[in-house]
Design a protein around this nucleic acid. Structure first.
Lengths: 339, 339
DNA sequence: TTATGTTAAGAAACCGTTTTCGTAATGTAA
DNA sequence: TTACATTACGAAAACGGTTTCTTAACATAA
């Protein structure tokens, strides 16, 4: 079990000082060619790699970015991470992941831990509980220390930082309009409570599309599901109560649950009811019928978030006190659930 | 932008030495009660938190564990991470994730980076390319340095380390037997190439179940899919060529693809063809019909791996040179795709 | 009074790097 | 010979903590 090689050990072995070794390895001309090659060869032979922790301490930067998300067992978040990781690695950064599990307290604890020197900046999406409480003191604490944050998807409007979002209002608007153009008149929406900003915005887009065409809005045609795990019965009741010929769902889980419920009730998708879902994940691609979706481009959002963060980190210094909100274009992916 | 508070700054402010501050904050009786409370109050008021990097350097441990997996956009791996994260956090550890993207080189680079002081130990599942090459020098290098590894799912038999696996042979065996007991006689298997050990082992279990009952093995009833992304046509051809009444698939993607293909060919699932899939993920739960699966218990495997690793890390020292292979019990989850 | 003990604090070493500064041994020009 | 450069290296500080070793001041016992 050969213990890790350090500058000190090399110095002792070759009977030179630590500084000489360090300089030689960085090819400093202060060191004679002879000594330099001797040291470099030794280092190569015994596979010397400088200790990251020591470098971090010295340089006051870790080359790591912290990602805090509510859940990882969630196709959208998994794709985001994938994008963050890709860009981060390209630029020589590593990714530390913490899950809030939709809990405010865990989000705070995780941020505190990471903020204490473990990382250079954050990429994050807020937990439901945080959105509900509207308590963002932990975010402020971090930004006050001069540590940059890039938020995506579930963002806090009144925190000054870069943000990567999709235009939820417009996307819902377009999807709704798509259904209307297919001559669906009795539309239902399956959404989340309003404190989840994406739920609120998508609901807004849904309403706007209807109003634009002069239809009036029936609040009973909008279902707000609290408990995503046990949404089955709620959705069934909702569908039984209305006579919808078109449905918009804010995620694919709601959509496929609705689709199955409808088929169980003897209705045909898309003939009787057309369905569009947010989030273009596995379920949409493999459900029967396959679902028309609004692609959220998680990969792309993650990549943009990481790129933005790293740019901030490497910009000469926080003179760059302007923040940007990037809106990623969504796209409607047509499949079997719309005619 | 209040710069981060350090011991040094507190010391200057309160006109004492750094050591006094450090001791006071750790409640040392070497410091008078008076001085101690003064310092503690100051630290609390200005929210002092010791710098993680400095602690890591001093203690020669980071309280971080590195996870290297092939992909994160993969329900099974996502659940494993979720389990790792849960247990790690409970024990005060954080999780650094790197993705190999099924590439040998990326796996090596990531391990090298992490091994240089960034983490205390690894939890990992090998990339396909690594399994194919059977080149494990990077694993050996790490273990030789005294850094523990726990492997799960895709493991290398000849590396000495703890392993968490499911009994793939037995699980496939049981699933096959289940189909046979339902009077299915013409069974097909959709698997991966043999260098992926889980594919090989599940194939073995499938064969053993048939032989045990005296059926002979028809190699043409076994499909080995290389390219998981574009498996559709291969599977369609395979199903068209045989007249199966029962199918075992080594993952749910293959299973749901097969199910849809069969239904497209006018066959009924499960009446004409029964299907069982490995990996109990989203697809199985929401496909039509829902799929009977073999649950791989990713959460549990991740949790066990993290617990094992941390136990190794905190055991008084590598006197504990024995390695364990934990076999996680699978369970057959019956749904609509089997009668 | 002297020897010994106790208390409360600071100095310094250490973890593994990088980097600035200092300097002995040369070489070169006046 | 003296003064100044250059070369090639080492010493030391710094990053931010923890911990061991020292020490000054005072208290107590012989």
């Amino acid at each position: 079990m050969a213990q890790k090689l350090t500058l000190k050990k090399i110095a002792q072995e070759l009977k030179v000082s630590i500084s000489t070794v360090s300089k030689a390895l960085r090819d400093s001309h202060e060191i004679s060619v002879e000594t330099r090659t001797k040291i470099q060869e030794y280092a190569k032979r015994y596979n010397f790699k400088p200790n990251n922790i020591a470098l971090s301490l010295k340089n006051q930067k870790t080359k790591k970015i912290g990602v805090i998300i509510p859940e990882i067992v969630h196709h959208f978040f998994a794709t985001v991470i994938s994008g963050v990781e890709r860009v981060a690695n390209e630029k020589g950064y590593q990714v530390i992941i913490c899950l809030s599990g939709e809990s405010f307290d865990k989000e705070v604890v995780n941020m505190d831990m990471l903020a204490n020197g473990s990382i250079d900046g954050f990429v994050m999406s807020l937990s439901k509980e945080t959105m509900e409480r509207q308590d963002f003191h932990h975010l402020r604490e971090v930004t006050n220390q001069g540590m940059p944050i890039v938020m995506f998807d579930r963002v806090a409007d009144d925190i000054a930082c870069d943000k990567i979002i999709i235009d939820d209002v417009e996307a819902a608007n377009k999807a709704t309009d798509f259904l209307l153009r297919k001559n669906r008149r009795n539309l239902g929406l399956i959404s989340t409570p309003d404190y989840v900003n994406v739920g609120r915005l998508r609901t807004q887009g849904f309403k706007e599309a209807l109003m634009k065409r002069g239809y009036e809005i029936d609040e009973s045609a909008i279902l707000k599901v609290e408990d995503i795990e046990n949404c089955g019965d709620k959705i069934k009741d909702f569908l039984a109560a209305g006579n919808y010929d078109g449905l918009l769902a804010v995620n694919e889980l709601f959509a496929v649950t609705a689709s199955k419920a409808l088929q169980g009730m003897g209705k045909k998708v898309p003939d009787d009811v057309a369905i569009i879902a947010f989030t273009d994940g596995m379920l949409s691609k493999y459900a029967s019928p396959t679902l028309t979706t609004i692609g959220q481009k998680g990969e792309e959002m993650g990549g943009l978030a990481a790129a933005k963060l790293i740019q901030k980190l490497e910009s000469d210094h926080q003179e760059d006190e302007t923040y940007e909100t990037v809106i990623v274009k969504t796209s409607l992916i047509e499949r079997e659930s719309t005619p």
